[in-house]
Design a protein around this nucleic acid. Sequence first.
DNA 1: GCGACAG
DNA 2: ATCTTGTCGC
Length: 264
Amino acid sequence: MEHGQLRIADVAVSGRRDGPDIAEKEPVIPGGPVREGWPDGAGEPAWPVSVAEALGVQDRLRPLVDLVGPGPAAPATVAGLDVAYAEDGDRLAAAVTVLDARTLQVVDSAVATGRPAFEYVPGLFAFRELPALLDALDRLSTPPELLVCDGHGLAHPRRFGLACHLGVLTGLPAIGVGKTPLVGAWEPPAEHRGAWSSLVDGTEVLGRVLRTQDGVKPVFVSVGHRMGLENACAQVLALAPHYRLPETTRTADRLCRTALANNV
DNA sequence: GCGACAG
DNA sequence: ATCTTGTCGC
């Protein structure tokens, strides 16, 4: 599956490298951009290398998020994405597993290895894993109908978390499922599976705190792209019939870990 | 000014 | 994310 087939948005993904403030231009990753052939804008770098550039990228892509689409009510295939890091944090493996939405069986999968593409900065987390995740998506034989991301979507300081970024870049419906909160206020939902409470920032609803199993810690669900919050939660519940996390993330997690262990 | 802070 | 020991519970 080529980037073209994924319909990577034809937009500038990077930030401008020329700026007045020298201090803010310091590369976050020594050596600069790590990805070649990125669908960058005219004359612009392949990937942001500083915090200032990354913030600029988010600001530019944020308007491209589709908040209208309710999303597929009954997707045939759902993909889970996750990344595992080596102990030294020098190497990583990204995995995508595609499940049959009805049987929850893995019908396709792919792995890509690489290096973290950015320093870990809360709010800029996506820039670390995106290149490897897109590489893995490229290796699938068929595009999935929905992406379930390990991290937040709209529940982000600038309303553009990993799930939004991945959704915009691929054009696919995407939802974010975080294990811990990043932003927003919330109250613990009732103890039973399916119970939820709103994750809010003032009057703005960022997502939902959803209990996927009786008595277990809830997960944080937010819209990524081309999905409605109600539908997103329904999909997550359907994907988590027995465990706290959706089967999509569980299978992807196992795949990238074993891949990392086998140096594959 | 001092914490908090997806993975 | 990753490192860690035992422990509580089904």
